[in-house]
Design a protein around this nucleic acid. Structure first.
Lengths: 209, 209
DNA sequence: TTGTAAAAAGACACCAGTGTCGTTATAATG
DNA sequence: CATTATAACGACACTGGTGTCTTTTTACAA
């Protein structure tokens, strides 16, 4: 279907593989998917697959990167809006456009946890994981710092610690999402409650509707 | 060293294996340890190992069970003491005897996460994981309910939701512990802050020293 | 139309890990 | 001491997955 070359066809094929891989990873988890699964899902031969990706790890990291990029982009877009308050911005960063906790969660989240947990003894992966953690942390730290600087948030707690507790909260939910059946996870209720907590920690006055 | 039989020697040998396995699992994680690792650590032959455990999963579940048993026992001991308050009891359950958040964490915690996350598509393991989750939840729910019933805790929030947020908090920390290098995890600070939150949610008046 | 460079295919060799099974060694028993 | 049941051993066959390499196919250029 595409032999000598043609940027578009290559791009297309690559996307087809990445796409298939996303589905397979989401469905089977990282450890349990094999290159064969991906081959089949993408209707591509062994050789075809290895033409584009050196191994499963390479493939997964590609997906991680793409995901991260789109999050960063989304985040940059947030800055272009006019923001009522840093509290609003915080909600926006935590829950996206709706500013509301929802029952939804990234299908790939469990596999991502898997990837970093099982890889915790591998230097490369661990460092990569740490970097992602720090980046995630910064997103929140920045907002909180700014909010504290302008007096909207209390300085009772160090911004980084508050940010950490946000990340830990999200991590905890992701973990439960990964392990428990959907109906057992009360994402919304727990997040609502967590927000109460944040309001307390930051001494937010006005109530959100 | 032990041929025809003798309850004690069998018990001893079995323990030797379990012990070795604990170390290996803690060090290598669940997915990455092989039966060979365990054999070597325990100085036991292949056949010797399979005499006692059918496979890696069997071995790990044995450890899980033992751990759980000792936790349950510990917990029952707590009930025998005289308790000043349900708040105290809650702290006791969360942090053990010291009633204080500490920087320590179970060495096997990461492997346990691994076990349940990678096994989330396996019916047996998932059900087992759910049961453990529910049991863990109940430990907290019970205390909170009792505290609410006697008026020590506010009924502002449903006991189960508060319990869930405790479990999620602990899960989140375990996850960070599993992924991040020790110095990056601020177990104590985060737990301290979480306690503030609990005090708020339960409307605890008196301050702990 | 033909030549060709490179992509796609899939057979293959290889490896690590598993669980089994026949053999060996030995603690208990009489 | 001899017998025996069985725990412990370790070689082995098997499996599932990997990454490579040769062959085939085909888009493009001349």
């Amino acid at each position: 279907m595409s032999p000598k070359v043609s940027k578009e066809h290559i791009e297309q094929r690559r996307n087809k593989i990445v796409d298939a891989a996303k589905h397979v990873f989401a469905e089977q988890g990282f450890e349990n998917t094999t290159m064969k699964h991906v081959m089949e899902k993408a209707s591509v031969s062994r050789g075809g697959l290895y033409q584009y990706f050196a191994n499963k790890e390479d493939l997964f990291e590609t997906i991680l990167k793409e995901d991260l990029d789109s999050i960063v982009e989304e985040n940059n877009n947030l800055l272009k809006r006019d923001i009522n308050s840093y509290w609003d911005l915080l909600l926006l960063r935590m829950f996206g456009d709706s500013k509301q906790p929802s029952e939804e969660m990234d299908d790939l989240a469990p596999s991502k946890l898997e990837f970093f947990i099982t890889g915790r003894n591998d230097r490369r992966r661990r460092e990569y994981g740490e970097e992602r953690y720090r980046n995630g942390l910064r997103i929140y730290t920045d907002v909180i710092k700014a909010g504290q600087a302008c007096g909207e948030f209390s300085e009772k707690y160090d911004s980084e610690i508050v940010a950490r507790s946000i990340v830990a909260h999200i991590d905890g939910l992701a973990l439960e999402h990964a392990i428990l059946p959907k109906h057992e996870v009360k994402l919304k209720q727990q997040s609502d409650m967590f927000l109460e907590y944040l309001k307390m920690a930051l001494e937010i006055k006005k109530d959100k509707e």
